[in-house]
C-alpha cells in the first residue's frame, strides 16, 4: 500500500540515534563519535544524535554490559517509543568478546534487551558503523 510504503521510506530515511555506553573500553565510543564528525558525517543519511530516549529510534549500545549498567540499559530501552531498534556496536556488545566469562559482565546487549543489528569489530570502525546502520535500514526497507 502506498501509505505503508511512505511510512517505511520515512523510517529508513530518518533514523535518530541514542548512544549508550554499557561498560565499553571507550574504543567503540570514540569511533561512534568519529562517525558523526566532519570526516564521516552520519547526518548525510538523516541520522541525528538525540539526547532523550523518547525521541530516538535506534539505541546504539557499546560495550559488554556490566552488572551496574544492566538495569539502566533496560530502563532506557523501555522509555523508547515503538518502533524501536537496537544496534549493538562492537564485538563486546554483540557477544561479550574477550570479556566472556568475567564475573562482572553479562556478555552482550542481547542478554538484557532484544537486538536488531550487530556490528562486529573491535573496535567497530566508523565505516562499519555506517555500514551496519545502512544494512539495518536496508532490512527495514525490504521486510
Amino acid at each position: 500500500m502506498a501509505l505503508e510504503k511512505l511510512v517505511k521510506w520515512s523510517r529508513v530515511s530518518s533514523p535518530w540515534l541514542l548512544h549508550f555506553n554499557s561498560g565499553a573500553c571507550n574504543g567503540c565510543d570514540i569511533e561512534t563519535l568519529a562517525a558523526l564528525m566532519p570526516r564521516f558525517d552520519l547526518e548525510r543519511f538523516g541520522v541525528l544524535l538525540k539526547s532523550t530516549p523518547r525521541h530516538a529510534d535506534v539505541l546504539v549500545c557499546t560495550g559488554a554490559v556490566t552488572r551496574q549498567q544492566a538495569a539502566r540499559l533496560k530502563r532506557i530501552y523501555e522509555q523508547m517509543a515503538e518502533p524501536k531498534f537496537v544496534v549493538a556496536v562492537g564485538a563486546c556488545a554483540c557477544s561479550g568478546n574477550v570479556f566472556r566469562g568475567c564475573y562482572s559482565v553479562l556478555e552482550g546487549v542481547d542478554q538484557v534487551i532484544p537486538v536488531n543489528a550487530y556490528i562486529p569489530g573491535c573496535a567497530a570502525k566508523p565505516d562499519a558503523i555506517i555500514d551496519g546502520v545502512a544494512k539495518l535500514l536496508g532490512a527495514l526497507k525490504n521486510g
Binding site: 541514542l18 548512544h19 549508550f20 555506553n21 561498560g23 565499553a24 571507550n26 565510543d29 570514540i30 563519535l33 544524535l49 539526547s51 530516549p53 551496574q68 549498567q69 539502566r72 532506557i76
Partner: peptide, 11 residues
C-alpha cells in the same frame, strides 16, 4: 540524570 550521554563519557 539518566546514565546515558552522547559524549564519550563512561559512567
Amino acid at each position: 540524570v539518566g546514565p546515558q550521554h552522547p559524549a564519550l563519557k563512561e559512567p
